[in-house]
Amino acid sequence: MTTFTVNGTQQVVEVDPATPLLWVLREQLQLTGTKFGCGMAQCGACTIHINGQPVRACVTPLASAQGQDVTTIEGLGSVANNPHPLQQAWIDEQVPQCGYCQSGQIMSAAALLAKNPEPTDADIDTAMAGNICRCGTYGRIRKAIKRAAGQAVVQNFDPSLEVQHG
């Protein structure tokens, strides 16, 4: 029996404590915003926070969550009700394409901003290098992180985007 807190709610689960936390979140707790991508901490799609630190849930045994404070994308904020500044920035910069990696991207970015509110490009590179996006939204992710950090950014999404008429 493992007892831990997920998004502010205490959970008690009876699952083999060696089971990666990813599958407990998805199958037992129905928190499916955290995604399975590789199973070996290579892609970052399963990034969650344990006590505020970003971890890859696909290689984190349930046992290590005992008594800890887990946050998933669902706990970070919701678009309908009080989105996290990063979630709003992701919408403003029109970041997601397929969207599958974006929970993990946002969780990595949230951990970065929590400890470093004004990250440089190099800080962003370091914090985000563990998260793969096969749709290639990296440029927009960078802009969205800067936007959420309140830094001046060149707006990528512009309704009046000028196009050349040939």
Partner: peptide, 25 residues
Amino acid sequence: MGKSVPRRDIPAKVDGTAQFAMDVS
């Protein structure tokens, strides 16, 4: 047509509510 309107699928893709096939229960 010709305007960059926000994509309608994006909000659900930033808070974990977008439903992919693996999210079916």
